[in-house]
Simulated assay, not measured.
Amino acid sequence: MGAGESQPDPRWEDVAVPIAPRGVVVGVDGSEHGQCALVWAAREAQRRRRPLHIVSAYSVPIFAASGLDGGYATVDDSVIREGAEAIVRQAVEKVMGYDIEVTSSVENGDASGVLLEMSETAELLVFGTRGRGGFVGRLLGSVSSALPAHAKCPTVTVPLVCSDRLGETTEDRRIRAEQAQEGHKLVENVVVAGVDGSEQARVALLEAAEQAERLGASLRVVCAVPQYSGSLAWVPAPMDRKALFDDIQVTLDAGMAWLRSHFPNLRIEGELKDGSPVDVLVEASRHVELVVLGTRGRGGFTGMLLGSTSGGVLHHAKGPVMVVPDREDARLADRARFGPVLGND
Rank of each mutant, 00 (worst) to 15 (best):
E82I: 00
H53V: 02
A84I: 02
I87L: 01
A57L: 11
R50C: 06
S56N: 14
D9V: 13
D76K: 02
V15S: 06
V79T: 08
S6A: 15
I87N: 00
Q46K: 11
P8C: 13
G70M: 10
P18C: 11
G67A: 10
I19R: 12
Q90K: 13
R49P: 00
A86E: 06
A3E: 12
G30N: 08
A42K: 05
S78H: 05
T74K: 00
V24N: 02
P10H: 04
E82K: 02
P8G: 03
S59N: 07
S59V: 15
V26C: 07
A3H: 14
A86M: 07
V28F: 06
Y72H: 08
G67I: 01
Y58E: 11
S6Q: 06
S78D: 05
Q46E: 15
V60Q: 03
V25E: 04
S56M: 09
R47M: 07
E85F: 04
D69R: 05
E82T: 01
V17R: 10
V26Y: 06
A84K: 01
A45G: 05
P8M: 09
C36D: 13
A3S: 14
G4V: 14
G71Q: 07
G71A: 11
V26F: 03
R22G: 03
R81G: 00
L38S: 12
A64C: 06
Q90C: 01
A65G: 10
V24R: 05
V92K: 00
C36E: 14
V26N: 04
V88T: 07
A86Q: 10
A16D: 03
A73Q: 10
A86G: 05
R43S: 12
V39W: 01
G70L: 12
G4K: 10
W40A: 10
V17F: 01
A91G: 11
V39L: 14
W12C: 03
H53Y: 11
A86W: 00
A3C: 06
V17Q: 09
C36T: 13
D9K: 09
D14Q: 08
S59M: 15
H33G: 15
V75I: 15
G34N: 01
I87E: 03
S6G: 06
R22C: 06
S31E: 04
V28D: 07
A57C: 15
G27F: 01
R43W: 02
V39N: 00
I80W: 04
V55C: 14
P61A: 03
G70A: 11
I62E: 13
G67W: 04
P8Y: 07
R11N: 09
L52S: 11
